[in-house]
Design a protein around this nucleic acid. Structure first.
Length: 491
RNA sequence: CGGGGUGUGGCGCAGUUGGUAGCGUACUACGUUCGGGACGUAGGGGCCGGAAGUUCGAGUCUUCUCACCCCGACCA
């Protein structure tokens, strides 16, 4: 079979880029670092959104929308937060253009300078907490459980489609609570929502854990994260949930009267996932034939391709094909019948494989005669012929099967690429070959973590919630450690 | 910001010692094909990233500039 993609074994990052472009998910735009998400890619994002939105609402959250612009002064209120984001903010300084007097086209009108510059949000904590100050007076106003679907801008030095773009789409939850316990519980609840979404919908196993102090969100007391392992042995942070303590409440002076009449600062959380999840799906499941989409997030779950010699034959086939399509759709399955005449079946087969469509049905005169249909699954690339009258019960099971299979495949891959390492030499060796997740002891200090990062390019991805107590020695400093933490090179 | 690379029809590329731009693919029409990226015939489409210079003549040489991509440091 002809090669349309770079082999991922040859050049993983080239494979990734090729795949994003050729599967028609996204492309680079005229603006540096910003991508155009194309309809097929956006359709996947919409599926992600729909399911997450359902999960957020099921856990009591509501959606709202806050402005894209944040007054500069808001930013300076929380010190750690400023430090974390200041160097990657886009700033609006003027509000008008004019024609250049020297005929150089359109220029910024210098007289239209803003009194106070506006920051294009890199995240919305500040503008949201500014509002919360007005909304919260009593414990009766709490909790506030708000989510926002939005775009944000972070002026990154180097970008990659979906994984790190200057502008990206995400959702950010911002909650306010009366007690520390409740906020911590919310933080945990949401990391669990993310983890179950990753595992159930994206078919990607993730490790839940605490971020080290170094890797924590700017302004958070504690950051929980889910980490997924990509097929090249690098980790991808797929979602974070932050316990913000009273930091933002204090910065924005948000106090409330509790049941006993005492004044206290509000407790906060924030949590988010982004279009980076698209990258996780691509890198987590894709193969050398293209994308492999989990059925639960595939915009097209089943594609039907007719094989015919002339229009009469096509119209006979279409009758059966449309019947199958209607029946499957009645079961809530999204089906595309591709009867376009401009490409041959073989071309379509390859194209839908590239696009990761989980199930392909091919129907031709031979099938019609035998009352059968050819069923091909994307995950295993295997084909079988089954009777048409069985298709209705067969396909839903098959989709479930594929969902489970690719999850198990990813889980096995992670198991095979998770290593328990006890010496620095082994640590370095394992990172280079084969890579993967490394469970190792760490003395708990920032200095050691930074040294490790400097010398190995690996970071502590998280301190897994379920990492058992175990006496050991720090892989780098040799100092005592009480549990292993998760190291990896990451995206 | 450092290192590497690339700018030529929509996309992917070629273009020799300077001589007035070509190939693949895609596109349009017609015909034959159609069970794993079909074929034939005909056709349309490019001031060669930009500016200045050398020259009778520049895609090609010189200088300047802009943009993008890849690899690092930063990050979801």
């Amino acid at each position: 079979m002809a090669k349309f993609l770079t082999n991922k074994e040859e050049n993983y990052s080239q494979w990734y880029n090729d795949l994003v472009i050729k599967a028609d998910l996204a492309e680079n735009s005229a603006v540096r670092g910003c991508m155009i998400i194309k309809p097929y890619g956006y359709a996947i994002w919409e599926k992600i959104q729909a399911e997450l939105d359902r999960l957020f609402k099921a856990t009591g959250h509501v959606n709202a929308y806050f402005p894209l612009f944040i007054p500069k002064s808001f930013f300076s209120k929380e010190a750690a937060h400023v430090a974390g984001f200041a160097k990657e903010c886009a700033v609006v300084t003027h509000y008008r253009l004019k024609n250049d007097e020297n005929g150089n086209g359109i220029v910024v009108d210098p007289t239209a300078k803003l009194e106070e510059e506006l920051i294009i949000r890199p995240t919305s904590e500040t503008i949201i907490w500014h509002s919360y100050k007005n909304w919260i007076h009593s414990y009766r106003d709490l909790p506030i459980l708000i989510n926002q679907w939005a775009n944000v801008v972070r002026w990154e030095m180097r970008t990659r489609l979906f994984l790190r773009t200057t502008e990206f789409l995400w959702q950010e939850g911002h909650t306010a609570h009366a007690t520390r316990e409740e906020a911590v519980e919310e933080t945990e609840k949401m990391i669990n929502v993310y983890a179950s979404f990753a595992e159930n919908s994206m078919a990607l196993p993730v490790i839940k854990g605490y971020k080290s102090e170094n890797e924590r969100f700017a302004g958070a007391i504690d950051t929980y994260a889910i980490e997924a392992l990509m097929q090249d042995g690098k980790a991808l942070q797929a979602g974070t949930s932050h316990f913000l303590g009273q930091n933002f409440a204090k910065a924005f002076d948000v106090q409330f009267t509790d049941k006993t009449g005492k004044l206290d600062y509000v407790w906060a959380t924030s949590w988010g996932v982004s279009t980076r999840l698209m990258g996780a799906i691509i890198m987590g499941h894709g193969d050398n034939n293209g994308l492999v989409l989990p059925p639960k997030l595939a915009p097209i779950q089943v594609v039907i391709i007719p094989i015919y010699k002339n229009t009469e034959q096509l119209s006979v086939l279409s009758e059966t094909a449309n019947k199958i399509k209607a029946d499957l759709e009645a079961k809530g399955i999204s089906v595309k019948y591709d009867d376009r005449d401009n490409n041959k079946p073989g071309w379509k087969f390859a194209d839908y494989e590239l696009k990761g469509v989980p199930v392909r049905l091919a129907i031709g005169p031979r099938d019609l005669e035998n009352k059968t249909i050819e069923v091909a699954r994307r995950d295993t690339l295997t084909k079988e012929t089954i009777p048409i009258d069985k298709i209705n019960e067969f396909i839903p099971k098959l989709l479930d099967d594929i969902q489970t299979n690719i999850y198990n495949k990813a889980l096995n891959f992670r198991k095979e690429n998770t290593f328990f390492v006890n010496t620095w030499a082994d640590f370095l060796k394992t990172l280079d070959n084969p890579g993967g997740f490394i469970m190792a002891h760490w003395d708990g200090t920032i200095e050691t973590e930074e040294k490790i990062k400097e010398e190995s390019k690996a970071t502590i991805r998280c301190i897994p919630f379920d990492s058992p107590d175990e006496e050991g020695k720090c892989i780098y400093s040799g100092k005592p450690s009480k549990r292993r933490v998760l190291f990896a090179r990451s995206y």
